[in-house]
């Protein structure tokens, strides 16, 4: 391997325009020499800014360096150069899968397979993600808030009788507060309805509360459901309202899909 690196480096010195940097970067990556691989990829990119494979190599190096958001942007730029680039679709599939966004991961992996159906690595990756998605669907209903930040700790959809429908609320101490919150939400809503009626405020639209340890937003995405979004004190009320708005859209879509 060291000989390979030496010979490819020598070739690159002889001919800086050579595309051998792609193989050299890949070998250095495989050896765990991330910094060296990054230098080779960036040098190659300077000479070949429109070479999709060079960006793809750089994105994979960024993943090795745990710079996932940056890697995503690089792969997205690859798709602007070549919308069918298999490496970019495969990479994006991996990134979305690692974030739990299985739908988007599957979209990219299917496009990766379509680009080259003979690549067994990509076919196997697609099958593996499909298996995970199928097992989740079989075990529990599709999460209404998949892909939402805080979906597993700070978003809760309940029915009008105080039963949890989707999402979860975890307290700061790590306790699952879902059932208790779901039960209390009905009481607070009934009291809001009465308050709004008796004070002639009209129909209630939302409730925002700020507490000593966090903020919360309550709305009714449909006539028979309530949506509660909880965040820390660092998320101001305005941003919380936006989050709740988006979560409300997701909840309505999910509720519509649940109805026969």
């Amino acid at each position: 391997m060291a000989d390979d690196v030496r010979s490819m480096t020598a070739e690159l010195v002889r001919d800086p325009t050579s595309l051998v940097f792609l193989r050299l970067g890949e070998v250095l990556r495989a050896e765990g020499q991330v910094d060296a691989a990054r230098k080779v990829a960036l040098t190659g990119l300077e000479r070949n800014p429109n070479l999709a494979d060079a960006h793809d190599l750089y994105a994979r190096i960024l993943v090795d360096a745990s710079e996932l958001d940056y890697a995503q942007r690089v792969w997205e730029s690859v798709l602007q150069i070549d919308p069918r680039h298999q490496g970019a679709h495969k990479g994006l599939g991996f990134l979305h899968y690692s974030r739990g966004d299985l739908d988007t991961a599957l979209d990219h992996l299917e496009l990766a397979v379509a680009a080259d159906p003979t690549n067994q690595n990509v076919v196997q990756a697609l099958q593996a993600v499909r298996d995970v998605a199928d097992s989740l669907t079989a075990e529990e209903p599709v999460d209404a808030f998949a892909g939402f930040e805080g979906q597993d700790r700070g978003i809760l959809l309940v029915d009008s009788q105080g039963r949890a429908l989707a999402g979860r609320v975890m307290t700061g101490e790590g306790h699952d507060g879902t059932d208790a919150v779901a039960a209390h939400l009905v009481g607070v809503t009934q009291e809001m309805v009465r308050t709004a009626r008796m004070l002639k405020l009209g129909d209630w639209q939302w409730l925002v509360v700020e507490g000593t340890d966090g903020n919360a937003h309550l709305t009714a995405p449909s006539g028979d459901s309530l949506l509660f979004v909880v965040r820390g004190r660092d998320v101001p009320a305005g941003r919380l309202a936006l989050l709740a708005d988006h979560a409300g859209d997701a909840a309505r879509t999910w509720l519509a899909a649940q109805r026969p």
Binding site: V181, L207, F228
Partner: peptide
């Protein structure tokens, strides 16, 4: 609800309704 969800004691409440 706030205590159940671990966000502590009430400091501020905003109830928005169509007429007030």
């Amino acid at each position: 609800v706030m205590l159940a969800s671990g966000i502590g004691r009430l400091q501020f409440l905003h109830l928005q309704a169509s007429n007030g």
